[in-house]
Amino acid sequence: MLTIRNLHASVEDHEILKGLSLEVKPGEVHAIMGPNGSGKSTLACVLAGKEDYEITEGTITFKGEDLTEMAPEERAREGLFLAFQYPVELPGVSTMQFLKTAVNSIRAHRGQGDMNVAEFLKLMREKADFVNLDHKLMQRSVNEGFSGGEKKRAEIFQMAMLDPQLAILDETDSGLDIDALRVVAAGVNKMRNSERSFVIITHYQRLLNFVVPDFVHILLDGRIVKSGGPELAFELEDKGYDWIKEENGEAIVA
């Protein structure tokens, strides 16, 4: 599904990813954990194709294709979805129109015609219930005036609508209370299957109580320094990141 080899990426000549490698197979759930500034969100942005990020070395292959050659919308149409850490507000753009445009763009890419309105509305209702999203929110502008929790749930709702093959969740758990966290986790779990892969980027272990990953990777200073099973997340929760930093010979900043 996704193969990252020796990825180096910088923002404004400042190198953030320094030789990251990762292999994600269909149906796998990978958690990427790391302290602030380790490059977690940069990884998400690079995968989604944000223009401010420059890849200076390494390769990213998605479903056998060179991902770095694709525009952001092509990546999305090929089945890559990013749940944003900070979802953007689009004033005046109704959630419905936004998603209809998105769904039909993806369908067109697959050689399918537009989804008819009745079918689309049914799908919207179904997927909104999926994450307990108030149907009224769909009448509103995209993310406008949504609470932090609503925005995160709306991201999962959008993910369900767009039915991606690879979903990247960028700190979707941050700022969620325990109930919202459960709802989001339940949404992700319902979407897990043998075809779909997830990359869950998180600072904390708590989401992983509800979405149990197949692999946990620890990202430090732009590199994956340790990989393991779900137990690694618990270990990290126990000992904090300092333990990893020490192991990697980094000075600990209090």
Binding site: E73, A76, L90, L99
Partner: peptide, 10 residues
């Protein structure tokens, strides 16, 4: 970027 990430053309 948010729109494009959802598959929408520029």
């Amino acid at each position: 970027f948010y729109c494009r990430q959802r598959g929408i053309s520029e």
